[in-house]
Design a protein around this nucleic acid. Structure first.
Length: 181
DNA sequence: GATTGGATCGCCT
DNA sequence: GGCGATCCAATCG
């Protein structure tokens, strides 16, 4: 289930090996999008060219363009027949930091990956990665989630209008690298 | 077929 | 706090 995946991804590491080099970030903020029964999920209206990556197995990359200019990175979740995904909203920079600084044209660590469209720039993910498996290929997730639920804060998702009161945004309490409180 | 508005960010005031 | 950037699916008719 996407909510479970969203919680368990917190504390895990996102790795991307690109032509320019390797970046690694710790996942510190996520949002769950549950599928066709979730009005805020892109798959709510059925399959389209954009959302097709959610229709299929979990553990794949779903990247879409937002506001015409930014990329947002998701990990698909749940059973094959349920088109769900987890939006990765913020990372704590771990490795390849100089490459992230170069791509973002920012030096301060909290500026590098503290938002869904910032982190795609920092780690070099674009629409060309849409549909890739996380179990083979350049984008991987590894490590384990943090111990104990008490370090995870759950709240409402950012920037949506439908199902606005569902508490499906999760972040690590007191972490300095989240996009907002 | 045309219009609308969004899971955002950075720069401006 | 406001606004511009500028793509594409959803909605309307």
């Amino acid at each position: 289930p996407a909510e479970k995946v969203a919680r368990e991804l917190l504390g895990m590491f996102l790795l991307h090996d690109s032509d320019e080099g390797r970046t690694v970030g710790k996942i510190v903020e996520t949002e769950a999008y549950l599928g066709q029964n979730d009005p805020a999920c892109h798959s709510a209206g059925g399959p389209t060219k954009r959302n097709k990556s959610m229709f299929g197995p979990g553990g794949r990359v779903y990247v879409y363009r937002i506001y015409g200019i930014h990329w947002c990175f998701n990990i698909t979740a749940d059973e094959d027949v349920i088109p769900a995904a987890v939006l990765i909203r913020a990372l704590e920079p771990v490795a390849g930091i100089s490459l992230m600084q170069e791509r973002r044209k920012k030096d301060q660590l909290p500026e590098l990956c503290s938002g869904p469209a910032k982190l795609t720039v920092a780690v070099g993910i674009t629409g060309q990665h849409d549909g890739l498996s996380l179990f083979s290929g350049p984008i991987r997730v590894y490590g384990g989630p943090p111990k104990g639920d008490d370090e995870i804060v759950s709240t409402t998702r950012v920037g949506i209008s439908r199902a606005a009161d569902w508490k499906l945004r999760f972040y690590l309490k007191d972490n300095q690298y989240i996009s907002r409180k």
